[in-house]
Amino acid sequence: MLRLTGVSKQFDNVVAVDNVSLEIPTGQMVGIIGRSGAGKSTLLRLVNRLVDPTAGSINFNGAEIATIKGRVLNQWRAKCAMVFQQFNLVPRLDVITNVLIGRMFYRSTLQAVFQLFTPEERTLAVMALQRLDMIKHGLQRADTLSGGQQQRVAIARALTQEPEILLADEPIASLDPRNATVVMGALRAINREDGITVICNLHTVDTARAYCDRIVGMVSGRIAFDGPPTALTGDVIRTVYGVDGEDEEFDINVTSTAIGIGSRGTAQ
């Protein structure tokens, strides 16, 4: 169980995340939706502690996360793996080494510097690549891969961390619909088959609806909606995406990238 209580993050004058409280039971797949700048990314970064909260408590299975540092913090980061919109691989390293980076916490600094990984760890990395169907690209440099392939390598890296939670920050925003489906399918499988909690920022409503057990809508750093996909009505979507009233009537299908669902919409 991941429990956020009154979590806030302020950058200079901007409150990115404003007093957010959220309880996520183990094994749930949660989609976070909201406009750009609503604080979705910051919320995920707060959980991984890539940014430090200005107020509030983050609690995982009874342990406080918001204030830990040093080795305990690194251990937490290993436990809650993260996947990014721009994949955040090391482009000049080959795929297998990128995946082995997932073992960083478990290696001593000296071993890491000399790339000394155990045969078991190398096997684990190969198995992760097999699972994501990327084994045939294992020795290629990461920058020779397409976006969808890179994101699958990033997920393989996340899996070798042996995570309890997987945070995905707009994982499909840079991908075409087919690759988006493959990546979302992989996240879904990891959630269903491994029982790993998945928290995923998404910018299309249908993707969230199609893949998540629960949807959280954020508006200006606060939670404006929290419920199952069936409760996500047109009115709620309008609250989440059009709260300023500056937007005229909009069609959610226009922004859709998911295959099969809402692909009728074409931009202008």
């Binding site: 078991e120 096997t123 190969v126």
Partner: peptide, 12 residues
């Protein structure tokens, strides 16, 4: 598993 992995991707 290790034998299988070595067979699949010896370069790893």
């Amino acid at each position: 598993d290790m034998l299988e992995a070595r067979r699949c991707l010896p370069g790893a």
